[in-house]
């Protein structure tokens, strides 16, 4: 009888050990790219602080694999809308060394510093980067937005 108890206890001990190992493995397992919320911010200062830029999908949600239009809004530090800006867009997936599947363009000025960026498409989940080169009366500057799908 006593020997059976020993087996049971050993079994339980073993189970606890296994649970511990598994917990350790889970907690240290590599995670999908996770960025600080500041890095996927939809609004930020441009590289040299010339403008404050915000970037968001025109119609709410991001849909993978579909052409969508986004809005880039440009204000000066003082909050004045930036008009007549020339904008060029590039980007890609830094982790996969490939560019964007489309070449998005600024197609319309909607007023109040807001530009429509059309032809944006994200073909896969993961981290995407969009680089904007902006040139306006106040000068030229760049900004990078991260989009995580």
């Amino acid at each position: 009888m006593a020997s059976l108890w020993r087996y049971v206890l050993a079994g339980l001990g073993l189970a606890a050990l296994l649970a511990g190992i598994l917990a350790a493995v889970y907690l240290t397992a590599p995670q999908a790219p996770r960025l600080a919320s500041s890095e996927i911010a939809r609004s930020k200062k441009t590289a040299h602080g010339l403008f404050v830029a915000s970037f968001e999908p025109e119609r709410g949600a991001i849909r993978q694999g579909e052409l969508q239009s986004w809005l880039l809004t440009l204000k000066t530090g003082a909050g004045t809308p930036v008009e007549g800006a020339a904008i060029t867009i590039s980007g890609g997936m830094p982790q996969h060394r490939h560019g964007l599947p489309t070449s998005p363009q600024a197609t319309d000025y909607l007023g109040n510093g807001c530009y429509r960026i059309d032809g944006v498409k994200f073909t896969m989940s993961g981290l995407w980067q969009l680089h904007f080169a902006i040139s306006a009366a106040a000068g030229s500057d760049t900004v990078v937005f991260n989009v995580l799908l």
Binding site: M1, L4, W5, Y7, V8, G11, L14, V25
Partner: peptide
């Protein structure tokens, strides 16, 4: 008693099996 210990043994086995990833 023997029934109880058998139950415990079963429980231990279940824990062991269920613990797999």
């Amino acid at each position: 008693m023997s029934r109880f210990s058998r139950l415990l043994a079963l429980l231990a086995m279940a824990v062991l099996a269920g613990c797999g990833k």
